[in-house]
Structures are given as C-alpha cells and as structure tokens.
Nucleic acid binder design. Structure first.
Lengths: 138, 138
DNA sequence: ATTCGTAATAAGAACTATTCCTATTATAGA
DNA sequence: TCTATAATAGGAATAGTTCTTATTACGAAT
C-alpha cells in the first residue's frame, strides 16, 4: 500500500502556494517562479515544479491544461471551467452548468467509468478584441 | 494578406492522411510515424509532423489535446468530444449535446468572444476497468 | 538548546514532444 | 524531358517539465 510521505512545511512551499493565490489569474510555473524569486531570490525552478506537484496532489491547487503547451495553476479548487484567449493565452474562469456525470448514457461514453468532465472554451478576450479592432481601422 | 502556398500531392502526405484514417482511434504523431514507415520506411518524423500540421490547416484532420502531453490526431472532423482513459491514455469519441455557444451570457464568459467549446472527459476504459478488477481480487 | 536523520533544496543535466534547419530529392508545370 | 522550387530525410534546436545529486535545513528526540 502507498506510504504517506512526511511533508515538511518549508518557506519555499508556503511562498509558492501564496504566489499561486495572489497572482490569481492562472499563472504558469515560470510566472510563479518569477513571483517567488522576488521574495526568495535563490529559489530554483525545479523546487517550484516539485512543490506545485505536491500541492496538486494534496488538492490545494489545481493544474489546468489549455490549448497551449504550458500548464497553468489555479488556486480555486472548486469545480469550474476555463476560457482561454487564442491571442494572448490568458486563462479566465467560466461558470457554466456542468454536465451531470451521472446522467450520461454508458453507451455515449463508450462504457467508460467517467471520473471528470473538463470544459475548455477558446475565444478572444475583450482587450485583444479591442486591439484587433484598432488594427483593422488603420 | 496571407498567400495561399501551392501544395504538392506527395506520396508521404497521402500515406500520412490514410494512416490517420485507418488507425482510427486518435493516434499520436509517433503512432502515425510507425504506421507510415511500414509503407514508406524512409519517412522521417519531421515529415509526419509537417504534413499533420498542413492537414490540420486544410481541415482534413483535427488535432486533439488531452490530459497527456502528446497531441492526438482525429480523422473525424465533425464536431464531437472525447473521453480519455486515465490508465492507458486511449482516446475515444463521445457524442454529448454541445453547449450552444450563442446562448452563453457574455458575463459568464468574462466578455470573451467565444470561438470553440471543447469538452474533455477523463475516465477508465472498459478494458482497464476489468484489468483493475482482476488485480483487486488477487 | 543541541544533535541527528532525512526531507527538501539549488543547480543543472536529462528527457519528451515538437519545431526548425539545410542539403538533397522529386513533383508538376512549361 | 527540362526546370523551378516545394517537400523530403536527417538531425540539430527548442520549450516545458522531470530527474539527479551534493548540500541545506526542518523538526523530532534527546
């Protein structure tokens, strides 16, 4: 059976968790790394990645995969979905009624046991839409 | 304005498209590469990636991003969603009523212009579920 | 408070999936 | 058939993430 590892409460781990919460808008590992280094300048990127993994395992944050290749981290662990700007890559929250897992007909899900439903919406954020409008007029 | 490049109809491109269709269940670039090399043994992986990109641009296939880090390719370009096995990584089709983009309240989508809605379901496929059952009994 | 075992760290190497580069090949139009 | 150049094979480069290892520092037990 899987051992529960002891977990030390290090400064790095605390600052990393705090940075994810304070940055708010779904930062990437590198953005979190930059924020953490303003407080603890000797922090390494691998420490950031390792602790993000631990925090995800502990359910304290969530990892969000979008259209891009980077993983974003979310301090809001309540069930919700995301919308991503195809221009600037920004990720925002969306609260649409989730599909009720239990009402899914087994045949429509190829007889899979359904665990999680993720909805990812692609779009253009208001700022980028405005910018595109300006460029069109010139 | 964007130039339309001339496109040559090469053997590699034809075999790559055919492989995506014949492999059926959402192959990755490496799986397509293996299949193509059974017909054209000197094909390079970069040729596979380049042509997959062209075929996606031309709307002949679709790229599907799941929970894993590899991109899967889908010969079915009709709108549908996917379910992915968290054990073996297999991707299958799912036909659930899509969210109607036009009925979304602007405020719930942070005033984004909505372009596409992707639903990705995570679960356990029947084969892996059976395997896990067996292991549990031992 | 001090000691000590070991979890966590910093630094950078390694890895994986994908994209880019360049000399060579082969397609399609003349 | 000839020719211009798009596409190819092969491999280097890149980006994001994970792994390795010597060193540091947390916290339990003295």
């Amino acid at each position: 059976m899987p051992q529960v590892q002891p977990r030390r409460n290090t400064t790095q781990k605390r600052v990393i968790l705090q940075s994810v919460a304070e940055l708010g808008c779904h930062p990437t590992a590198v953005q979190i790394y930059s924020a953490v280094r303003q407080v603890l300048p000797r922090t390494s990127l691998s420490t950031v990645y390792r602790n993000l993994g631990i925090l995800v395992d502990q359910g304290k944050i969530k990892a969000v995969k979008g259209a891009g290749s980077e993983i974003h981290y979310d301090h809001n662990t309540c069930e919700h979905n995301h919308i991503e700007c195809t221009v600037c890559g920004r990720v925002c929250d969306v609260h649409v009624n989730p599909l009720n897992i239990d009402t899914l007909d087994p045949e429509t899900v190829s007889n899979f046991i359904v665990l999680e439903v993720h909805m990812n919406i692609l779009g253009i954020c208001p700022e980028c839409a405005e910018q595109l409008e300006k460029e069109k007029l010139q």
